[in-house]
Design a protein around this nucleic acid. Sequence first.
DNA 1: CATGAATGAGTGTTCATTCAT
DNA 2: CATGAATGAACACTCATTCAT
Lengths: 192, 192, 192, 192
Amino acid sequence: MPEPAPLPLRADARRNRARILAAAEAVFAEKGARASTEEVAARAGVAIGTVFRHFPTKKDLLQAIVKDLLERLTGEIGALAADGDPATSLFVFFGGMVRQAAAKKTVADLLAADTGVELEVTGPVLTLRSAVETLLLRAQECGAVRPEIRLDEVLALLTATCQGALRSGWDAGLQERTLAIVFAGMRGRPPD
Amino acid sequence: MPEPAPLPLRADARRNRARILAAAEAVFAEKGARASTEEVAARAGVAIGTVFRHFPTKKDLLQAIVKDLLERLTGEIGALAADGDPATSLFVFFGGMVRQAAAKKTVADLLAADTGVELEVTGPVLTLRSAVETLLLRAQECGAVRPEIRLDEVLALLTATCQGALRSGWDAGLQERTLAIVFAGMRGRPPD
Amino acid sequence: MPEPAPLPLRADARRNRARILAAAEAVFAEKGARASTEEVAARAGVAIGTVFRHFPTKKDLLQAIVKDLLERLTGEIGALAADGDPATSLFVFFGGMVRQAAAKKTVADLLAADTGVELEVTGPVLTLRSAVETLLLRAQECGAVRPEIRLDEVLALLTATCQGALRSGWDAGLQERTLAIVFAGMRGRPPD
Amino acid sequence: MPEPAPLPLRADARRNRARILAAAEAVFAEKGARASTEEVAARAGVAIGTVFRHFPTKKDLLQAIVKDLLERLTGEIGALAADGDPATSLFVFFGGMVRQAAAKKTVADLLAADTGVELEVTGPVLTLRSAVETLLLRAQECGAVRPEIRLDEVLALLTATCQGALRSGWDAGLQERTLAIVFAGMRGRPPD
DNA sequence: CATGAATGAGTGTTCATTCAT
DNA sequence: CATGAATGAACACTCATTCAT
């Protein structure tokens, strides 16, 4: 098991780490995972060496971004599970994620990216899974999603739709109509 | 308009062209469009110069593969439109494509891939579109697909599902259950 | 000593040889010695193999062109020596060569070209030398060129002026004014 | 306008930059502009990447050499204009340049070379032009150069003679005798 | 003999990663 | 710690030359 990320002590180092992560998310969102590490450094306003001090390989940097993202998503789901309407929360979350995937390359692209390396983020992914599961179960309890549908299918549809939205540049209308079909499939009846 | 691919005349050249295409499809399927042209050459058992004689740039090679593939798909659809049951043909084709995407990275990955270059294959894509349209209209005529669904959504779902299947490595069961949900959405009623 | 160029027997081969030489002269005149042999073949309307059958290396091809050129020049000088005015023939020849160098890259460029290989054309060069010498001696006899000037200087000035004209793209006026200065130097008195 | 060459700040980088420039001048002087960048790197004792960090393209490297050279020449002329005898300064400079061209391929070869790319060095060239103009005007004022001769002809003769000296390998004696003729043409009377 | 496909060493250039300053 | 210069393997592409058809 890799060391659990020793937090840097000096304030400027922590600040740099954050700036690098933000820059990396922006750069990779814009240009995909093939953007060069140099560009991330430039956007972050630090030297290339600093990036590699914080993230010894490019893979580490990508993993860190994805982990951040997964945690943020898990948080959003938690909020929905606490306050949201059980019948719609799953669809709200699902739709939001797809809509944002179309804007940022990050989510879908990095989750299964064409990096040539496998990003190891199983931990955060599992957490996300169970967060989504909560939404799913609650939706099924009130009949908003057909009972035989499992978590795996929901996640499969989620990643598929994100990838599709991302890579094919759907416009807003197409996105909504496509989601409507998927949601109808999950509900087991025509869109309203 | 660039010259429409000067097909080689000599038998050995035609053989090599085919071997290169096959090798390229295999290599890019396995490692994505970032695999090197050298590797394609090696797999084809030819020297690097031979690859570039047949396909002057890497982009040309990728385009050739995609074009081949689109034409093959269009052919399959034609057959279904001729002989198949209107109510199921669309689903048969859709499912088949997703299943094959899971095996080969080619389809979805190359169609909108992270190549850094835009592949110009609009012609074959349009042909494919209208082939799919035929299946869709016929399915709608017999009530197998809800009438308000348009071609664009079908294609969006198709590419999304292929991408998902491809990039996330769905197993056969998951694939079928996911497709069942999508098909239910298109039919407007629960899966049978 | 290399074999004295075994003349090809078949008529079509001889024709091809001539077409290749003409094409090579044109191509190299236009684009310099770095133009590809493929381009020569294309311009000649033959396959690349045919070029290499006639001229086993690119160097051989360049040599052949230069030799041709030198022989043509030697011929022109012979004509001038036979019919021309002794006082002006040298200047006529000199000027003509520079003017043509400006139009064609051939002369000057190939004579000392940046080919990376030394073209071995000593024989034809010696012949050309003695042809020019005739013009020089006759010019000196009638006082049109200062007596202490030697053949080497004339040739040096000739190649220098050709190179200059060629590589720096002099316009017609500049060419004439520059030649006037050189000729004044050779005559030993101001230009008329 | 491209950024004006971000001069490196660190001492080792400045040292490397200088070594690369020196190596490039030597290599290109010896083998012409077609020598490979790799060879420059080897001669400079650095890795290939270092050359490209300092000069992002081969063209940039060539330009840097030429610019350096032009500035050095302009400096020499400035010194002559300040201290030298007006009647001889132009000839001293002209002769010096030709003599050095014979030793180094650099000057003439790179100024109008067969590089395949146009080197953009108009700025430094213009500066050099006006420096030479100073020498010319002063020489004409004291009757050492005929008044109708323009700057363009002087420069034309200069580049031509450099090219000639360079590409044909004149020996010292030939060089001097050839220059004597050119100078006689510029003075309008026989060499002394 | 002509053809033109195949070869493969070589070129300019990029970029993740290391390490001296 | 940060910096940014150095490294060098890798890549797309070219072209003189060879050789099967």
